[in-house]
Amino acid sequence: MTNTTESTAAPRAVLADDERLMREQLRARLAEAWPELQIVAEAKNGAEAVELVEQHRPDVVFLDIRMPGMTGIDAARQIAQMDVGDEGFLPEIVFITAYDQYAVEAFEQGAVDYILKPAERDRLKLTVERIVKRLAARQAADEGGGSNGAPPPAQPLQQLLHKLASQGGVKPAYLKWIQATVGQSIQMIPVDEVLFFISDEKYTRVQTPQVEALIRKPIKELVDELDPERFWQIHRSTLVAVDAIASITRDFRGRQIVAVKGHPQKLEVSRSYTHLFKGM
């Protein structure tokens, strides 16, 4: 929950681009368009960006899409998977791109914003206005304990990242079978039958209407291997089949709870994923 000190603090950002001149230009343009913003760290690649975001927990992350090694999209995936406990931390993400009309079209539909290289003042001003509005809505929701009219993203962040990662029209090959341990045997479980996945420190539980099994693959890997149209991440440790969702209610703490069709398990939705269920 945001306290009074945090609510009055200046917004903080991490900037990641492998080109030093581009970082300098963007920093200068941001100082013009958003003078309150503090650039707390800069990264030269995706891996460095992930490390700095985990260290500083900024409000906004500016990520160049094409960086050597880990791309901006891969970095955003890892940021979205950070173990944040009950804090609900998930920074606003702004991608930096020099081209890719397909990507730009995806951004216009998604939960993130974008900046075209070189950073034009008018377009950057629009991006800043959108981010400021989102941050204000999130702060109001934290303080008021509700959505307060905050506009939910048009699609989950993970869906957008999958879409960006498959630029050029090549559809990813998603998992169709899960090889899992059931008792003393190994079974091949069709993904179509899975109701949900729940991870702990060592194993991930695979639940179907008839079978409960264990695998060693963590949720952050499954997110990239399962069709995001069919499986939604609702918690850092939970994926649920969209078709298996029976209803969403709120508990006494105000947390969203997913009821699963044909199964007694109740699945908690963490604050970072409440946007999946609009109007709740």
Rank of each mutant, 00 (worst) to 15 (best):
A103K: 03
A103N: 00
E105K: 13
A106I: 13
F107A: 13
F107T: 06
E108A: 15
E108T: 11
E108F: 12
E108Q: 15
Q109L: 15
G110M: 05
G110K: 02
G110D: 11
A111T: 14
V112D: 08
V112H: 13
V112T: 12
D113P: 00
D113C: 04
Y114V: 01
Y114L: 05
Y114M: 03
Y114Q: 02
I115Q: 02
L116F: 00
K117I: 02
K117S: 01
A119V: 00
A119P: 00
E120F: 03
E120C: 01
E120K: 03
E120M: 04
R121V: 02
R121Q: 04
R121C: 06
D122R: 00
D122G: 01
D122Q: 01
R123G: 01
R123K: 02
L124Y: 00
K125E: 06
K125L: 05
L126S: 04
L126D: 08
L126V: 12
L126I: 11
T127L: 00
V128W: 00
V128A: 01
E129K: 06
R130P: 05
R130W: 10
I131L: 09
I131G: 08
R134Y: 03
R134S: 14
R134N: 09
R134H: 13
L135T: 12
L135V: 07
A136G: 04
R138H: 03
R138G: 02
R138W: 01
R138N: 03
A140D: 04
A141G: 04
E143N: 08
E143D: 08
G144M: 09
G144E: 11
G144F: 12
G145L: 09
G146C: 10
S147Y: 12
N148E: 12
G149I: 01
G149F: 02
P151V: 05
P151R: 07
P151C: 05
P152N: 06
P152A: 05
P153W: 02
P153A: 06
A154W: 07
A154P: 04
Q155V: 13
P156I: 05
P156Y: 08
P156F: 08
Q158G: 12
Q158S: 10
Q159C: 11
Q159R: 11
L160A: 06
L161H: 05
L161Q: 15
K163R: 15
L164V: 13
L164Q: 04
A165Q: 15
A165R: 11
V170H: 15
V170R: 14
K171E: 14
P172T: 05
P172A: 09
P172R: 05
A173L: 10
A173H: 14
L175I: 06
L175Q: 08
K176P: 05
K176D: 14
K176T: 15
K176L: 11
K176I: 10
W177Y: 13
I178E: 08
Q179L: 13
Q179H: 12
Q179C: 09
A180W: 06
A180Y: 10
T181C: 14
G183R: 11
Q184D: 15
I186W: 10
